[in-house]
Design a protein around this nucleic acid. Sequence first.
DNA 1: TATCCAACCGAACGATCGTTAGAAAATTAA
DNA 2: TTAATTTTCTAACGATCGTTCGGTTGGATA
Lengths: 214, 214
Amino acid sequence: MPSAVSTKAQKPKTSKEMAPKADRATKGMQARERIISVAEAIFNKQGFDGTSMRDIAAAAEMQPASMYYHFESKEELLWAVWEKGGIELRNRVNAAIEAETGPWQRMETACVAHVTGLLDWRRANQVLFVMPPWHYPESIKARVIALRHGYEQIFVSLIDDLPLRTGIDRRYLRLTLIGALSWSLFWFKKERDTPAAIAKQILSMLREGIEGTK
Amino acid sequence: MPSAVSTKAQKPKTSKEMAPKADRATKGMQARERIISVAEAIFNKQGFDGTSMRDIAAAAEMQPASMYYHFESKEELLWAVWEKGGIELRNRVNAAIEAETGPWQRMETACVAHVTGLLDWRRANQVLFVMPPWHYPESIKARVIALRHGYEQIFVSLIDDLPLRTGIDRRYLRLTLIGALSWSLFWFKKERDTPAAIAKQILSMLREGIEGTK
DNA sequence: TATCCAACCGAACGATCGTTAGAAAATTAA
DNA sequence: TTAATTTTCTAACGATCGTTCGGTTGGATA
C-alpha cells in the first residue's frame, strides 16, 4: 500500500528533460516516503516502543542501517510520520468544510472528516491522537504539541461561528467535542459503526441535548 | 510514599498472639503492595515500555530479582497495577452514586467521581484509560478488557435510568460521555480546571444541548 | 537446638535494541 | 570513459532489557 502521495512533483515533462536536481530529490523522496509509509502502518499497529527499526527496515525492504541515511533517529522518523498524518488530516478537514456555508453544516462536515480521517482513511495518526502528551518523546514534544495545536484551531474557528446558548464555554465545548469524536478510536467496530454516523450522532446529541420526557 | 493501604489485616491483637500464617501473608503483602504502589506511579509517568523492572525495583528499594518473587513477569505486574486502579475507581464511583437518588443527580455524581478519580485522586489508571485496547499486552488483554467492560456497566445502568429524547442511542451516548470525560486527561491543567467543574459542564452541555440564538 | 521456608540478593545470561563505521554499489556529472 | 556523489550495504558495538540461577538471610517452628 504505497499510498499515492505527492500533490507536488508532478509537472508532466518527459523524464529526460526533468531537472536533475528534482530528479535526485524525487528518488530520495521515494525511499524516504516509502519508509514513512510503512513506519506509519507499523507504528500504528505495534506502537512506537513495540516497533524496532529492523521491523520498519524489513517492511521497507532495506537494511536497518540504510534508514539512517534518511532519518537521523527513530524519533525523527516518528515525527515525520506524525507530521505527515497531522498535515493530511488538517488538509482533509479544511477541504471538507470549504464547500459548506452554514455554521452547523460546516461543523458537521468537519466532525465527519475528523472521524473519517482517524478511522478510515489512514490509521496512522491514531497513535498521535491517542498518546498522552506527557509521553511524547522529549526531542519532538514541542513540535508535536504545535502540530496538534494548529489542528485544533480549525475547531476553534468553527465553534466561534456557532450560535450557542448563553453560558456555554467555547473551550470546554471544543475539548468535549474533539474528545468524544476521537474517543471513537477506542470502540469503533467497522461491522457496526460508520465514521460518518458516529460523527453526526455525537454532534447531534451535543447540539440538541439528550434530555427528554422519557 | 507507601500509601497507607490495607483496609484488612488490622485485627488489633498483640503482635505475639497473631496467627503466624496471617503474619507471613501480611509481610508478603506489604512488599507486594509497595511494588504495586511505586509501579503505579512510574508506569504512569514513564509509560509501560519506558519503565524498566530496575526502575521499579530501585523505587521499591529492592533488587530487581526480588520482584520476581512477587510477580512472575512485568506484564503481570502491570495487570496488578491496572486491576487495583480499576477496582478502586469502580468502588469510588459506586460509592458516590449510592447517596444520590434522582437519575440526573446520580449521573452527575458519577461523572464527577470518574473525572476526579482519573485526574486527582490517583494518577495511576490513567494509562489504562488512555492506551488503545489493541496495544494491551497480549497476555493480559482479555483481563483488561473485562475490567474496563465491568466498569462501563455502571454507566450503562445509569443511562438506562435517564429520561431521554426519543431517538437517542444509549450506546452512543455512553461512549460519547465517557469519551468526553476521559479526554480531559489530555488537556486538564490544574491551575485552570477542576475535575468537578469539567464533569458538570460536559454533562450539562450534553443534557441541555448547546444550540442557542447567538 | 536444629529445621524450615518466605523473602531477598548478587551475578549473570541471552536477546534485542538504536545506532555507527566503513566500504560497496548505484547513479549522476564531466 | 572517469570522477564525483548519492544511496545502500555488511558488520558490529555498546547499552539495556526481562528474566533466571543459585545462593544467603532471618524469623518462625518443632
